Simulated scan of single mutants.
Amino acid sequence: MQNQIQSERLTFTKLAEQDWELVRSIYTNPTLMKHIGATMTEEAIRLNFKKELAPWSLTSTHWLTWIIRETATENDVGLISICTRNRENLTAEVGFIFQEAYKGKGYATETVKHIIDFAVDTYGFRKFTAVCSEEHVASRRVLEKVGMKLDEIVPDSTEINGKMVTDCFYSLERS
């Protein structure tokens, strides 16, 4: 598997040990986690981090995660991950998170589109899913811009910081 791929403005590098501090800073940041879930303990982050460092294949149960960097500056922009959800139907879930300074630049749309194209070409995925809270309008817009369709809205689906939120379930079929 390629450890690094590129889009027009971004470089995606497979998660590596040297990315620990970035990952820790993202998952302990209440602002970044507002629509995703509660901030995580360092122990929980370390456990997930170690899983995601393992080699990945279609049969893996852990996420394949890339660090997103601006190609021109090499600044850390965020994370994007895919995880196999159905091997028989070649379905993957997509998840992403961006640091505040890089929101509103079109990076999320560029990233999700590029990683979906990469996952189709490299792994043969044919369907992609994503979940986000109804109130996370920016993420919903990104998913719709890359061609995902809203399949279902489920009220009181997930608890985030003691509050039940409505989740939006999206999908995209590729041939």
Rank of each mutant, 00 (worst) to 15 (best):
M40T: 05
A38S: 15
G37K: 05
R69N: 11
I45W: 07
R69P: 00
L47G: 03
F49V: 01
L64W: 05
T61Q: 12
A44H: 11
K51T: 07
I68D: 02
E43N: 09
N48F: 10
K50A: 11
W66T: 02
N48C: 08
E52R: 14
E70G: 01
A54V: 02
N48G: 13
T71D: 09
E70K: 12
E43L: 10
L58P: 01
E52Y: 10
F49Y: 04
L47C: 06
E42Y: 05
H62D: 03
T71V: 02
R46Q: 14
E52W: 15
A44F: 06
T71H: 11
G37S: 12
E74L: 11
T65L: 03
A72F: 04
G37L: 05
L64A: 04
K50I: 11
K50W: 00
N48Q: 13
A44N: 15
W66R: 04
E70Y: 00
A38F: 00
K50R: 12
I36W: 10
A38I: 00
R69K: 13
K50Y: 08
E43S: 12
L47V: 10
T41K: 08
W63F: 08
A54C: 10
G37Q: 08
T73M: 08
L47D: 12
T65A: 05
S57H: 12
E42Q: 12
I68L: 03
F49L: 03
A38Y: 01
L58R: 14
L64P: 05
H62C: 03
R46G: 01
I36D: 02
I68G: 01
L64Q: 09
A72P: 00
P55S: 13
E43V: 11
I36G: 04
I45V: 12
I67R: 09
I36K: 00
I67M: 15
W56P: 07
S60Y: 02
T71F: 06
A44M: 11
I68K: 01
R69Q: 12
M40R: 15
S60A: 10
F49S: 04
K50F: 06
S60T: 03
R69S: 12
E70Q: 13
M40H: 11
A54Q: 15
A44C: 02
R69L: 03
E52V: 00
F49I: 03
A72T: 09
A44D: 15
K51R: 13
L58K: 13
I36H: 07
R69M: 04
K51C: 07
A38C: 08
S57C: 13
L47H: 14
M40Y: 10
M40S: 14
W56K: 06
T39S: 09
H62W: 07
L64D: 04
A72V: 08
L64Y: 08
K51F: 08
R46M: 13
T41E: 08
A44R: 12
T41P: 03
N48Y: 09
K51Q: 14
W66E: 02
K50D: 15
T61K: 11
W66M: 11
R46S: 12
E52I: 00
E74W: 01
A54Y: 01
L53K: 07
T59H: 10
